[in-house]
Design a binder for these strands. Structure first.
Lengths: 194, 194
DNA sequence: ATTCTAAACTAATAGTATTAGTTTGTCAAT
DNA sequence: ATTGACAAACTAATACTATTAGTTTAGAAT
């Protein structure tokens, strides 16, 4: 037999199915229906539902890495950080369902996942290198930066931040700028202590 | 019949069952087993599994509101904000399973949920009032403050921020202090424009 | 004592993921 | 051309999940 099914086709179909809908779980049954195949047939290509979810997370991570990478190309320091944050948010806005799977990547054991997770953060470390921060400072501020991005995005997606008295776009910019200012201040301080 | 079952007992049992385990879903079957009753029997008291989850979210929200309220009693401005942030994080650390249900509160329609969600934020608005911010500034900075807390907590819970080169406790403090500094700067700026 | 009602029950439905075992279609070697 | 082997589909069953309908039961109120 063989209906042209493969691991790649399955993962990409699953990714397409959940891409636009935030927090949507991939269902093996529904996925099989979409592929015109019986659910059990998928197990010739994948190990488990969790396996598909992991692959979709990796697929999504690569897409995010590509888009943030393009956004910061040729930029430095503040400009690069703000561009990264905006591209990050844009990715979630365009692919809310996929973003969900990236965040769950770290739960799994697969080393590729940890690598992908590291690759998402890597550009931030590179940008921070230009500030002349110590190693531990870099770790701290990278965490702070990601917390701001992710915390804002998740809460907005859960239906918060809808008060019309304040534009959420502006809130996000204020939050990111706040972290950027904090990074600059930390860099100047450690410079002064030399 | 009647085994002393009630909505309150069900919700509190469910809350206890998931309290310590992050991201754990409440299962009607497991809950019934714990209560020594058949799954269908629960439906004499609750409308659906989602109903229980909502009630657990409310239960958790009240607990969080109480604990953050106590933490900031008698404090002002920076001190109050830092105390709030620490109590918020402590709550999640002690009740990771419950925190999960608070965040999902906003998804539901129930007006009590929106009220509880508002009550969590209310103390932040009160603290910000002392800074003399404009109304829209208050909205912005309240969002920024919550994003930092929630974003940090969620990512850590998903297994990030484990690099031993930087203490995560310290990262959290740096992030919160960064937002506090941003608030003070924004307040001074709007003061200067008078 | 009888009646009423709340709260339990059983049994069934429709979903979920998953496994074991079977069939089939295609491609390669004889 | 026929056979054999393998990959990839299948059917059927298991064990979960939530939920509904309809039935029984126990205790409180008359």
């Amino acid at each position: 037999m063989g209906k042209g099914l493969s691991r790649e086709v399955i993962v990409e179909t699953a990714a397409q199915m959940v891409r636009e809908t935030p927090f949507q779980q991939i269902s093996v049954n529904e996925l099989a229906r979409t592929l015109g195949v019986k659910p059990a047939s998928l197990y010739n290509h994948i190990a488990s539902a969790e396996d598909i979810r992991t692959e979709v997370g990796l697929y999504a991570a690569r897409k995010l890495i590509r888009e943030t990478g393009e956004a910061i190309a040729g930029k430095k320091r503040q400009d690069a950080l703000m561009a990264f944050a905006k591209a990050y948010r844009t990715f979630e806005r365009d692919n809310p369902g996929l973003y969900f799977y990236i965040i769950h990547l770290h739960d799994a054991e697969d080393s590729r996942l940890r690598e992908a997770a590291a690759a998402i953060i890597h550009p931030i470390y590179e940008i921070l290198a230009d500030y002349g921060l110590t190693q531990s400072q870099s770790h701290h501020w990278q965490r702070v930066f990601r917390s701001m991005m992710h915390g804002f995005i998740v809460q907005q997606r859960h239906g918060y931040f809808t008060n019309p008295q304040a534009d959420s776009e502006q809130s996000y910019e204020i939050g990111i700028q706040c972290v950027i200012d904090g990074i600059r201040a930390a860099a100047q301080e450690s410079e002064g202590n030399k």
